[in-house]
Design a protein around this nucleic acid. Structure first.
Length: 283
DNA sequence: TAGTTCACCTGAAAGC
DNA sequence: TGCTTTCAGGTGAACT
């Protein structure tokens, strides 16, 4: 379940082996992920240099020497693995693909020497990759501020939540309000801020949004730090991230004691998604 | 216009 | 033991 911290960790893992490198060969093992690939996906990538890899919300954005931009979303189960060792006979002859390996990027340096082989695997295929031509707009143009940026602060959040009648949990998942938050970290941030997820978003008090913003930033920064600690493992082996090893205070802890007050953690459904919270200390 | 619900997808776990 | 059902969740489209 990649959220912003994990996508940031993935970006940090991929950037050293992709930036400044050329897409030597691109292999698509199917015609679509969540959405169909551009019919010229392969042709538009091969031979192009990836000049910069960045993250916006939960998207990875690769800027190409052609001016095209490649947006990649990991969906629910997407992950990249990097193999920067020389290709063995098996891999050369079979492509070395495993089940659900949908895309393979074989990178080269500017002299045509083989670089990293980067494989995108996505069991549930909720992820997608889309190419955007220069000047073309993309869905990311309408999303809210990055939560770790200075543009995301308490006055900004108050303004965006003003008059919102939806529940605060649902509102924080709305990417137009703040970019990159997912179910897990919204639950955790609301617990730390002691705000009941069922409260109307527009009714939060000033000090509550102050505290909420602080906790959103803290928890994301901590999670990125945790993911970063296992970057080496991610880059070289099987995609395991510190993220998954993180123990959450309320997420997935139904009926377990709240770490603050020992009351049982409750689970409800909001907008079709599970919400975990403590009814005793979140008001 | 704003808010809500559903489809997409597959593996794991639960239930029978 | 094996089959069936349920659940997980990010995003966009459809619906209210």
């Amino acid at each position: 379940m990649p959220e912003l911290p994990e996508v940031e960790t993935v970006k940090r893992g991929l950037a050293p082996v992709m930036e400044g490198q050329v897409f030597g060969r691109v292999t698509l093992n199917r015609t679509n992920l969540r959405f169909p690939f551009d019919p010229k996906f392969k042709q538009r990538l091969e031979g192009q240099t990836l000049t910069r890899l960045s993250r916006r919300a939960k998207f990875l954005q690769a800027e190409l020497s052609s001016g095209d931009r490649l947006f990649m979303h990991l969906g629910m189960s997407g992950r990249f693995t990097i193999n920067d060792k020389p290709q063995g006979r098996y891999q050369r002859e079979t492509g070395g693909t495993a089940k659900h390996d949908h895309v393979v990027f074989e990178m080269q340096d500017q002299h045509g020497q083989d670089g990293a082989r980067i494989t995108y695997n996505d069991t549930r295929r909720f992820g997608f990759m889309e190419l955007v031509a220069p000047g073309e707009t993309y869905r990311l143009d309408h999303i809210g501020p990055e939560p770790l940026s200075n543009q995301f602060n308490a006055p900004e959040l108050r303004a965006r939540l003003k008059d919102k009648k939806s529940q605060i949990k649902t509102a924080l998942l709305d990417q137009r309000i703040v970019a990159g938050l997912g179910n897990i970290y919204v639950c955790e941030a609301l617990h730390r801020a002691r705000i009941n997820p069922q409260r109307a978003a527009g009714k939060l008090k000033q000090n509550e949004t102050d505290i909420l913003v602080r906790h959103i930033k803290d928890i994301l920064a901590e999670a990125i730090e945790a993911g970063g600690s296992s970057l080496r493992d991610f880059a070289n082996t099987d995609g395991d991230l510190g993220y998954f090893q993180h123990r959450f205070r309320v997420y997935g802890q139904e009926n377990n004691p709240c770490p603050d007050c020992a009351a049982p953690v409750q689970r409800i459904t909001q907008g079709g998604r599970s919400t975990f919270f403590c009814g005793a200390c979140q008001h």
